[in-house]
Amino acid sequence: MEKQDHLDLYHQMVLIRRVEERAAELYQQGKIGGFLHLYIGQEAVSTGLIAARQPQDRVITAYRDHGVALNVGIPADLVMAELLGKATGISKGRGGSMHMADVEKNFWGGHAIVGAHLPIAAGMALGDQYSENDGVTICMFGDGATNIGFFHEGVNLSKVWDLPVLWVCENNQYGMGTTIERASAVSEIRQKAEGYGIPNERVDGMDVMAVRAATLKALEYIRSGKGPYFLEIMTYRYRGHSMGDPERYRESGEVKKWQENDPIGIYRVYLGKEKIAKENQLDAIDERVDEEVQAAVQFAESSPEPELEELFADVYAK
């Protein structure tokens, strides 16, 4: 990795966090409607994954999708505009927080029914296998999704047909407010991949370099035609499941303990220790992000609402 690559990753992680912090404020001001699920604490996961992919690799994720949206390069302006439901939003204001996508950037969405995008990911991978493309479909989902039937149908099919798909379980240890031990027969999720004969690995999701390295290895395996691979990435969300979550299910001490292992903090230390970047360089990135986010909010707020005729657009191709 070049120095600039590192600085880009750092920039992405800080950008995700600041965009989301602003989004939380805008939500509280009533400017963002519906649900808002924040990714704060999990930034290293999507950042490490996307850093390792090739342009032909597709990515599809669940409803906690702002991180991936920014990682794949959707401008913060368009993410913020979508959150505000504006015509300029990446999904033209029809998707909202949970449904962002940019097909041009090989990002196939934000999907809001838990686990339902796993069979779809298998189908996308089938598309590449069928057309003899060497792309891999990276499919991200939470630990909660591994208890639903869709997970098992999708993962099983991927192995039966040796599909080029990288299954990525972001284990943040809660499905909404229910701990993994209360919801899953095994708390080590990778054991479920074991059950389907799929090679797997547990990864420290607070360390962006560890996520990137594991992803590179997994993608190489899949690209060589050996079939699917499964990563269980250990992470933690600092905020509630969504805005308005009273968080009765966990002690604040638990959150504090994880925050000591903050992915952005860890990466800053790494960049200093490896003499890749000085403190003041990173501070400069932080400042640049603040300006970017400010501009994004301005762009979103000053963007027009969708025209009423837009209500009827795109229900059908024709």
């Binding site: 339902a116 779809i120 298998a122 189908g123 999708g154 099983n156 099919l157």
Partner: peptide
């Protein structure tokens, strides 16, 4: 077998898989 594909008895995988393949340009 590539174009006439026997699936497991798993309807969510049949329809979901079809959706994914269709999204990326096939006509399942």
């Amino acid at each position: 077998p590539k174009r006439v594909r026997d699936t497991p008895i798993a309807e969510a995988a049949i329809v979901g898989g079809g959706i994914g393949a269709a999204m990326v340009g096939l006509r399942p």
